[in-house]
Design a protein around this nucleic acid. Sequence first.
DNA 1: TGTTTTTCAGAATGATCGTTTAGTTATATG
DNA 2: CATATAACTAAACGATCATTCTGAAAAACA
Lengths: 197, 197
Amino acid sequence: MGRRKSYNRNELIAKAMTVFREHGFAGASADMLVEKLGVNRYSLYAEFGSKQGLFDAALERYEEEFVGRRFGPLERPDAGLNEIRALLAFYGERGPEAAGGLGCLLCNTAVEFGPLDPSGAGFVQAYFERLFSAFKTALSNAKAGGALRPGADIESEAGFFTSSVIGMFVMLRAKAPEAMLKGASNAAIAHLEWLRV
Amino acid sequence: MGRRKSYNRNELIAKAMTVFREHGFAGASADMLVEKLGVNRYSLYAEFGSKQGLFDAALERYEEEFVGRRFGPLERPDAGLNEIRALLAFYGERGPEAAGGLGCLLCNTAVEFGPLDPSGAGFVQAYFERLFSAFKTALSNAKAGGALRPGADIESEAGFFTSSVIGMFVMLRAKAPEAMLKGASNAAIAHLEWLRV
DNA sequence: TGTTTTTCAGAATGATCGTTTAGTTATATG
DNA sequence: CATATAACTAAACGATCATTCTGAAAAACA
């Protein structure tokens, strides 16, 4: 039995999420990670194998925590239009100071890497599918309960809401003017209310 | 009078746009730029001063050509809902194979740099303002001509359409499933038609 | 033809990159 | 207390980075 670890893996991943969210994968150097995570580089490589390995762990954690927290409510069997509305309102109310220009890590990664998937883990595609599916689930529930306007195309509406929230993530990331963000959320909510019968 | 240039500045910028669009700023090395632009590195630095200078020229060109081409129609004094519809249809019909997973250079840059503006030229903020303003112009024209549903909040709708197209740019960039993209465009168009009287 | 000027081709510079290494330190066990 | 083991510290490694430099080549002019 040798020297005990003076770091906690989960804490490292949590800090890494913030660094990668702010700087991207390419913009976050190993030196920066060492400094901001407060751990020596030997332990970083021992624990995660590589910078890419740490990045993958951060993406996975982000999916579980952040995406799960925000989109989980839409995935519940009893989810409906109210859950969608709460989500849209949440993002619209945040304003440019919220999350300090970080945006969504998975959305940022989608843009940074484009169609490439260096680790082959498919985090970005899974993310898109999850958002799309969450909206479809909630809309389908609303339809089954007779709460959705007849003739509403669930596939289209789900794609629409997915692209709306992704657009909001980009605006949050780049600290776009607040009027744009609030407008985006308000109009999306108005459209949602129109869908409701 | 000495040796003549064997490169054309405008051609270099056009090629640079594609390289930066695909790889981002950080992901495009000087070696890569030299190779793909077909020019020697001395000329590159002589012409643009730095990699950042070339990048800025690419952003400016992109704004003029691509953003101008797509959003220019919305900025015309006679622009209305038809121009918005054509724009949404254009992006929705492209599919994941279009533009080879490139997305929109300015949108990609917004995500890559977040709130930072290394060159201080404000290209990203100007881009957001332009998109927002273009939608506002077209919607205002429609309202003035009595073609817009009474009570429609132009600021909200403009923010909404801005976030929708930005969301589509991210989907195009990351080659998201085609159903999501088509759905996003179709629902946005349906919403636009609902706004029309 | 020689000279001057500009661009090209390739190498070099100093710094940074991701990752590994070697010596030291801290811990548990016998 | 001595030993073995694991983590820490700091440096090093080989490669890449953006930018500059140097000699060669190409062009126009006298």
